[in-house]
Amino acid sequence: MNRKWTRLLTASLMTLTLDAQAATLLVGSYTDGDSQGIYRYDFDEHAGQIASQPRQVVKSISPSWLVLSADQRLLFAVNETPQGHVSSFSLSKNGEITLLNQVPSQGDEPTHASLSHDQRYLFVANYAVAPDPGGSLVVIPVARDGKLKPVVQQARHTPSKVNPERQAGAHVHSLVQSPDGRHLYACDLGADKVFIYRYDGASPEHPLSPAIPAAVSLPPGSGPRHLLFDAKGRHAYLTLEMSAEVVVFDVQDGAPVERQRLPLTDSKDVAAKAAGGLHLSADGRFLYVSNRGTANEIVVFAVGKDDGRLTLLQRRSVEGDHPREFALDPDGNYLLVANQKSNQIVVIRRDPSNGKLGDTVQKLSQQAPSDLKFL
């Protein structure tokens, strides 16, 4: 083989190696300041580095939560504003984002959304800061071309009013479907309950109906926020925002039964209690939970192989303020934190063998990041 062909082959192999090490990171943000909306970055999985400049910036008003379709050809974003909206985007093979359409969420400050397992409906949580009329969950059909249709169903809950400042109205914070697709779980911070709905995709006007039992009650003033199932759906994990706790449930026939509740901080200070997102490692052996407030930590737990119970392993500073969300990279070697109030994404090394978080690899300036999703 002559030198010319050797150089071409070497260059091709190097390109393939770089492509194999690169992942696409999508960042949702709040646009009250200088942020423009959705950012698309290259992420070097070998070095644990986010590219210094985004490949694409998509202008969108406060796309604070992002949802990918199962085939990763569609992207949905809630636009967290008064009189909220939800936006739909197409994703090309190289990750290029193009707006398809936008519809009203029929509520204020939508903070979370999820797709039904059959990809027919988008479930949207309208948090609604104002207590009247308060928060709600809505069901939005997704057309075959990826465009969103108007809301077909809406549900509201009765608030607990335990905390007169934060629970005077309902505040739906997240909507998560069970792994088998039969139930939808609505975490309502204002009601101190997780509401359970049966899902019927064949019912175009009312795909959701109350399950039996219709709800699970949490401690008064605890404020349920985000729920997460393990891969088999036998166990679920819930963050209680206001009490800064994580709850472990056993789940049978759609009904969660509490088995364990652990604090995220030893502090008695209310300001140190602001539980946020939670994610399992791909192998299901470790659970990561964010606690914001004055704590600003990621709390790491080992997960019991058979019973799903948690054992505290580590509390690790996020080296920033208000870790609203975070994500594990596709290889599980890094954990990326969206520090909303300090305007940075922090990349932390992770040991897949023991689950613990190590040194900080990178701090990337990013205005008001709120959600991170990998393609």
Score class of each variant (00 low, 15 high):
residue 182 R to D: 02
residue 171 H to W: 14
residue 278 L to I: 08
residue 335 L to W: 00
residue 277 G to A: 08
residue 184 L to R: 03
residue 33 G to Y: 07
residue 232 K to R: 13
residue 128 A to M: 04
residue 301 F to N: 14
residue 60 S to L: 05
residue 223 G to L: 01
residue 353 S to P: 09
residue 117 H to A: 13
residue 65 W to A: 05
residue 27 V to I: 06
residue 341 K to Q: 08
residue 335 L to K: 11
residue 6 T to H: 09
residue 216 V to P: 04
residue 81 T to N: 10
residue 93 K to D: 12
residue 288 Y to S: 02
residue 364 L to E: 05
residue 357 L to P: 00
residue 253 D to Q: 07
residue 351 D to M: 10
residue 359 D to S: 12
residue 238 L to R: 03
residue 372 L to D: 02
residue 5 W to V: 06
residue 365 S to D: 15
residue 64 S to G: 04
residue 136 S to V: 01
residue 325 E to R: 02
residue 4 K to C: 15
residue 353 S to L: 15
residue 197 Y to N: 08
residue 218 L to C: 12
residue 293 G to W: 02
residue 40 R to S: 06
residue 140 I to T: 09
residue 18 L to Y: 13
residue 54 P to R: 04
residue 94 N to Q: 11
residue 256 P to A: 12
residue 52 S to C: 13
residue 140 I to F: 13
residue 265 T to P: 01
residue 166 R to K: 11
residue 48 G to C: 11
residue 240 L to Q: 01
residue 127 Y to N: 06
residue 322 H to W: 05
residue 11 A to R: 05
residue 242 M to Y: 07
residue 326 F to P: 03
residue 355 G to R: 01
residue 90 S to N: 09
residue 64 S to I: 07
residue 72 Q to S: 06
residue 345 I to G: 00
residue 170 A to K: 01
residue 105 S to A: 10
residue 131 P to Q: 02
residue 281 S to D: 11
residue 201 G to V: 06
residue 17 T to D: 10
residue 26 L to K: 10
residue 286 F to Y: 11
residue 232 K to V: 04
residue 130 A to K: 13
residue 178 S to D: 08
residue 344 Q to A: 02
residue 75 L to C: 04
residue 270 V to K: 13
residue 231 A to Y: 13
residue 133 P to R: 07
residue 59 K to D: 13
residue 273 K to N: 04
residue 13 L to G: 11
